Computed example of a mutant assay.
Amino acid sequence: MYNPNLPLVYHPNYSFSFDPKHRFVVSKFARLKSYLEQQGLIGQNLHQGPVGHYADLELVHCEQYVRDLYHNELCPKAMRRIGIPWSKELMARTFTAPLGTYLTASLALKNGVACHLAGGTHHAHYDFGSGYCMVNDLAYTAERLIKEKRVHNVLIFDCDVHQGDGTAAMLTHNPFVFTCSIHCEKNFPFRKQQSDLDIGLDPNVSDHEYLRVVEATIHDLLEQLNPDLVLYDAGVDVWQEDTLGKLDISWQGLEKRDRIVLNACNQKGVPVATVIGGGYDKDHERLAKRHAIVIEQAAKI
């Protein structure tokens, strides 16, 4: 049975008309919401955050960078590094999603667990974007909650197949945020940053070894850090058929991974906010169902 009161966060501007052949599937957010509605997981538990503005992200990003990004004044090289063509709709989504992650974290602090139907833009750095990520919602949420004195310390537990390089770089000097990235070592980004804990896995690692690492790591970190909040990037690009992943994790392995992380937090009484992270698939409906796994698992707690 699913918990009908699991707080979910979504905004209609997350998806918009976009090239369906582009590797980054903009429609996946709306498709994810639609799938969750079909599964009976959405009702009065759906929350909508405010529309964001570039000024919001000046808390953690270079002011000039976010202003130039918003006004389409970045140089062509900088936009190529991001990998998504500029549009007003993209900017609306880009600056709204971090506020959605912040709202998700706020709901998790109140309810124990909450899930964002977006988020996990961990390749965004202080003054540049990269790998389809323009601003860093994880860094923004952690920094804002700490600044507001709503939490003392935060664990960012990133299980996307790609290292959370932007998050690591942006938070390297913050002693109150611990960044952990469990990723495929021989994958993007090819110039890694230093997280507080990096676990780089060999290509083709399968369920048994992967789940052993995830379980041992989350339990150890919760015990050592006793965080006030966990921000969990449940990237599904570790799946064996993902077009940008190089691991060999089954669908059932994804379910077990999310169950391990969520149950570990629940058992320790640590609030956890989830974001969907990366996932790439030519079958867009299947991708939405893959991103739904963490939400389905959270609804079973």
Rank of each mutant, 00 (worst) to 15 (best):
L225K: 12
N226G: 10
N226R: 15
P227L: 08
P227R: 00
D228G: 01
L229D: 06
L231P: 09
Y232V: 13
Y232R: 13
Y232N: 12
D233T: 14
D233N: 15
D233S: 15
D233G: 13
A234M: 07
A234E: 03
G235Y: 09
V236Q: 06
D237E: 03
D237L: 05
D237W: 04
D237K: 00
V238N: 03
V238G: 00
W239P: 00
W239S: 07
Q240L: 14
E241Y: 13
E241L: 13
D242Y: 09
D242F: 07
L244S: 12
L244K: 12
L247D: 02
L247G: 02
D248Y: 06
D248R: 01
S250A: 05
W251A: 04
W251Q: 00
W251E: 02
Q252S: 10
Q252M: 10
G253N: 01
L254Q: 07
L254T: 00
L254I: 07
E255N: 05
E255A: 14
K256C: 05
R257L: 04
D258H: 03
R259D: 12
R259P: 06
V261S: 04
L262W: 11
L262V: 09
L262Y: 10
C265K: 04
C265L: 11
N266G: 11
N266A: 14
N266Q: 14
Q267I: 13
Q267H: 14
K268M: 15
G269F: 10
G269A: 10
V270Y: 08
V270H: 10
V270P: 10
P271C: 07
P271T: 07
V272I: 15
A273N: 13
A273G: 14
A273H: 13
T274P: 09
T274L: 14
V275L: 15
I276P: 02
I276W: 00
G277S: 11
G277W: 09
G277F: 09
G277H: 06
G278I: 02
G278D: 02
G278W: 00
G278E: 06
G279P: 04
G279Q: 03
G279L: 08
Y280V: 08
D281W: 03
D281I: 08
D281F: 02
